[in-house]
Structures are given as C-alpha cells and as structure tokens.
Design a protein around this nucleic acid. Structure first.
Length: 617
DNA sequence: GCAAAGTGTCATGGT
DNA sequence: CGACCATGACACTTT
C-alpha cells in the first residue's frame, strides 16, 4: 500500500518518511495507519476508484476488440473452432489484431475452464495490472512459451502417434490446481527427451521454413532453433503455426504462470498502450525460454537479426503477429496437445539453423536441451547419460527463467555461444550425475526455484518422464499394473520401436520391483514391529514368571518354617518308657509311604530301634 | 554439513 | 524359459 500511496499523495519525500516513522511507531503499538490518517484512507479510496475506472475502460476496450476480432473469425460448425475469415486484404491490417484473435479463440472458442472471456480478462487485470504487463518481461516470455504449437500442422506424417502421446491421458491434469498446473506446465517444458524426439521428427519440416539466423551455423541445438526469428517476408501462411492457441489457452489455466501476463501484454499491445520496453528487452525476455521462441520469433523478428536493434514501436506493427492470430484459430486446446505442439514446433523455428539433431546422428543427448534420450534402452543408457531427474530439473529451471522478470541473463547465455553449450554438454557427459543446474551455464542464472523443481520432480516419476519423452502411448500405471496378457495385448496394438518397447518393459520391471521393494520393506517393518511386540510380551511374561517364582519361593520358605516348627513340636511331645524326652540330635521322625511315622535313631542301630519305637500318632 | 530415514534400482535366487 | 516375487545391497534423496 505504501508504495502505491506515495505517488498519489502530494507530500514531500521527507514528509512521507516522517509519516512512515510515526506510523511504524503506531503499528508497533498495534494500531494501523488507516486508523490515524483519514485523508490517507480517502486517497486510497480515490486511488482504488481510479484503478477500477481504468480497469473498466480497459475491459471495455478489450471487449470491443474482441467483438471486432470475432467478426473476423468464422465459427467452424464442424469443429466448433473459430477460423479466421479469408486473409485480410493486407498483412499490415492484421498487425494489431493477431494477438486479439488468439485471445478470442482461446477464450471464446474453447473455453474449457468454464470462465468467460470477460472473467478471464478481469482476473488477469486484477492479477496483473496493465502497467506491469508492459514491464514484466517474464510475463511476455511466458506467453511465448506456447508458440511451438503450430508444430502439429507442420509435423511430418510419420508421427501419427504424436497426437496421442501419453501426455494427454494424464488423469491428473483436470484435478490440478493452479499451482499444479504450473508444475505440469513446467514438466512439459522440461522434457528434453520429448523435445528431441519431436525435433527429430520435425527435421523434415525445417526445410519449409527457413528463417534467417543470426546465430552461427554451428548451432546444433534444437532449442536454439527457437531463437531464429522469421523475416517479415517469411511470415506467411507458415506463420500461422507460430502461435498455438491451445498453448495460450492452456496458459490461461495457469494463473501463476506467465500466460496471464502475456495476455495482458498482448492486450496492451493491441490497445497500443505505451509499452516502454525496447526491442532488446523484448528479445531478452523471450530468448530465455527456448520454447517461447517460436512465438517470439514471429513476434519480433528483429530480435534475431538485429539482436534488439529494433524499437518496440516497430514490433506491434509488424505482420509477424499475424501467424499467431491465424494459429490461434487452430483447434484443440488440451494441455497435452500444447505440450506436443510446443515440442514439435521447435524444429520449425529452427528451420534456419542446421540442427543436426537427428536421433542417431551427432549426439542428440548432448544437445543443449540436452539430453535427448531417444532410442535409449532405459536400463543401459538412461541413467548414466540422461539422468532423467537432472534433465527434467534442468529444463524446469530453464523455463523458470521465463518467469523471472528481470533476468536477461538467460537469454544471453542461450543465444550465445554454441561453444559454451558444447562445453556444458561435455561436462554433462563427463559428469552425468551432476545436477543440471551446475551443468548448464544458463542455469547459473538467478532463477533457482528449487522448491518448484522439487515438487515438480516429485510429481513426475522418472519413468513417467521417460515414457513421455519417448511418447509411450500408455500410462505408467497401465504399463506396470496390467496383467501380462493384457499388457502384451496392449503392446501388440501399438507399433512401438525397440527403444519404446525396451523402455516399456523396463518401466514394467522397475515398477513391479518398486512395488515389491515397498512390500518387502513394509513386511520388514511389520516383522520388526511384530518382533518388537513379541519381545515386549516375552519380557512381560518373564517378569510375571519371575514374580511368580519369588512368590513361590517365599511360600516355600514359609512352609518350611512351619514344617520345622511343627516337627519340633511333635518331637518335643515324644517320651520314652522312663518319661524322658528324645534328643533331636539322636533321633529323627520319619514317615513311611503308608502314613505311619517312626522315631528313627540317627545311629546305625536305628533300624532295630526303629521297630521298637514305632509311633502311632 | 552430517547422520538417519526413505526411496528407487539392480542383481540374484526362488517359485 | 519367462514372468513374477522377495530380498540384500547400493546410490541417491529427503528429513
């Protein structure tokens, strides 16, 4: 509040400081500033009202634009999607609208989350004030993330499986909270393997779109492909693919993620609100995130060539945006699809670059993105080379860059030096187990969101990541838990290559072994608990027996005493013929089995005497 | 930073 | 013989 108040109030800085000091003192006493400052509250109200008015105006503008855009769109009755009407007479005309179109398509055409366009806009406006939208670079970056979506259009026919990648079946998606969705998005972005696969598959399409690349031809990483931006001249029908509406839509579901901001930014552009960021910033913002590249490439071609030489003013007017619009009209908004498209798109943008990313060719896994582990037998190569966990984390971190507002560093690192990347790759190879953050230079950037990464990693098991990377059309759960027959049947129904089969079987083996290990440990723990219980019970039993024994001993002792006293008593009553008592030292009383008692002399003659001294008690 | 607990994985042997 | 399970051992992660 304080920050916002300052500009409004016409008070000198000194006064403000003084007020703040006094206010803090009051606060320390448990009072709030508003309590004392009525004018302050009034000003706040005014501010709020002002903001609301601004928002209303903005929303109104947006609605008008939306209408205008909708007018430009046709509703495809078959697919229910919004399709752009016949291309505008001149490419320049659409320059301002493309973004809007995408928005419309996203919100109106395929509103899966049940929010109306206006609601979304309002939410966005509330969450990300327009002013911030222009300044918030990360936001812009995020918006670009989805760009690769067009890939599906350009994808080679050899990848029929792509649309049905395991990603889609993910049951978690619908239940995800905004945070989870963000994480999921991160996961998607962080699947180098998937990227690589897609890149390889997309190689064919590279030829179609040859974008001028500022980077040296050495750039072999598929990720870099994003950076090259298409020339304005190149921006044509192909560009339609650049901005996948699904991606934007998917992003809509991630309030925390950049998308909202991006939308804001887009709207801001559409409205031609003053955007203070320069082309350089713009480029930097987007560069950090490879995935974003496609969209950005289309958005700001200068980023590549001029490397930020162009001014912002140029950007909005450039036809480059057109592709997005058209693309936004493309169908499908499922999150999974977005992923696929994102991945697939990479190659397109790369087109200008010679990416030797073919699966087997150079070393795909060495590519910056890395670790493409295409065709690896999980057990053999996966762990050492790919270290899935690290990879994913690596990517997640990379993408985190997008969300880092002020971080331009990543862009630089990415753009730069292929050599550096190669070094990183070598590092990776040498130290496969090292954490990605340490491996990749760009990861050194300030964007260390360990928490996010951890949770994200936790959420997606290694095998799940691998399966996604290789586009296994089954869920890990199915792979592991299906009965053998069903499992084999399932495999037979899909044509999987050797790598995929190996991975599936490894996943099944590992999954079952994991369960077995869990059961084993559980049993072990249960056994331990049981043994501890037995131990306790045995200890109790021992104590009880000891107590019993001691009791018995005491009883025995007492009885012996009683017997002894009784013996003496009986002995004292005995008299010989002369009336004399017997000495206990010379005689003893003994009882036979038949119950008769004898007075037995302790000497050898006792037997004789015994008979004579028979007593009848 | 370290130790303990937890977890995933592999190798091995048994069913 | 293959699939599965149980378990010790190891490496790594989490607490």
């Amino acid at each position: 509040m304080m920050e916002m108040e300052v500009p409004v109030m016409n008070v000198s800085q000194q006064d403000m400081e003084l007020i703040d000091i006094l206010w803090r003192q009051d606060i320390d006493l448990g009072a709030r500033r508003e309590v004392f400052d009525y004018s302050h509250r009034q000003k706040e109200h005014e501010l709020q009202r002002q903001r609301e008015l601004e928002e209303e105006k903005r929303l109104q503008l947006l609605r008008e634009q939306e209408k205008a855009l909708l007018e430009q769109l046709q509703l495809d009755e078959e697919t229910g999607e919004y399709i752009p009407r016949p291309p505008p007479s001149t490419p320049l005309q659409s320059a301002a609208t493309p973004l809007e179109v995408t928005q419309n398509a996203n919100f109106t055409g395929e509103d899966g989350d049940g929010m109306s366009f206006d609601e979304c806009l309002q939410l966005l406006a509330e969450t990300f004030p327009l002013v911030e939208a222009t300044e918030d670079t990360p936001v812009g970056v995020d918006t670009t993330v989805p760009a690769p979506s067009n890939s599906h259009i350009m994808m080679s026919p050899e990848q029929p499986a792509l649309p049905q990648t395991p990603l889609s079946p993910d049951p978690l998606v619908p239940q995800r909270t905004s945070l989870d969705l963000e994480q999921a998005w991160m996961e998607l972005l962080s699947l180098p393997e998937l990227q690589q696969c897609l890149n390889m598959q997309m190689e064919d399409t590279l030829e179609t779109t040859a974008y001028p690349v500022t980077n040296s031809p050495e750039v072999q990483d598929a990720n870099y492909s994003f950076y090259p931006l298409p020339n304005l001249t190149d921006v044509g029908p192909n560009n339609v693919d650049v901005c996948p509406p699904e991606m934007l839509h998917a992003l809509d579901t991630f309030p925390n993620v950049a998308p909202p901001d991006s939308l804001n930014q887009m709207t801001a552009k559409a409205l031609q609100l003053n955007t203070s960021f320069s082309a350089d910033n713009f480029c930097d913002m987007f560069y950090p995130n490879p995935i974003l590249s496609t969209k950005e490439s289309t958005d700001n071609p200068h980023c590549l060539e001029g490397n930020g030489s162009s001014t912002l003013s140029e950007v909005p007017n450039k036809p480059a945006f057109q592709p997005m619009d058209i693309h936004s009209l493309s169908p499908g908004d499922t999150f999974e699809r977005c992923k696929q498209e994102v991945m697939a798109e990479l190659p397109d943008s790369d087109s200008g670059i010679s990416l030797n990313t073919s699966p087997n060719a150079s070393s795909p896994e060495k590519s910056v993105s890395g670790d493409g582990s295409f065709g690896f037998s999980d057990s053999d190569m996966d762990e050492p080379d790919l270290n899935p966990g690290s990879e994913e984390s690596d990517y997640s971190e990379m993408f985190c860059l997008n969300f880092q507002p002020d971080d331009l560093q990543p862009a630089a690192s990415l753009l730069a030096p292929v050599g550096q990347q190669q070094q990183q790759q070598e590092k990776k190879l040498k130290q496969p187990r090292t954490e990605p953050a340490e491996e990749t230079g760009h990861n050194k950037a300030p964007f260390t969101k360990d928490k996010q990464r951890k949770t994200y990693e936790v959420r997606l098991s290694r095998d799940e990541q691998r399966a996604k990377a290789l586009q296994i059309p089954f869920t890990v759960d199915m792979i592991i838990n299906l009965p053998v027959d069903d499992f084999n049947e399932m495999l037979s129904k899909h044509q999987l290559n050797e790598a995929q089969l190996a991975l599936v079987r490894d996943i099944r083996r590992r999954g079952k072994n994991k369960v077995a290990a869990q059961n084993c440990r559980k049993r072990k723990m249960e056994n331990i608990v049981e043994l501890e219980y037995d131990l306790d019970s045995l200890k109790e039993q021992k104590e009880r027996l000891l107590r019993e024994k001691s009791q018995n001993d005491s009883n025995l002792r007492e009885m012996k005493l009683q017997l002894n006293s009784l013996y003496l008593e009986v002995f004292s009553m005995l008299r010989d013929e002369e009336g004399n008592s017997y000495s206990p030292s010379d005689y003893s009383l003994q009882q036979t089995s038949d119950g008769s008692v004898f007075l037995v002399p302790r000497t050898k003659k006792t037997p004789v005497k015994n008979k004579n001294k028979h007593l009848s008690l």
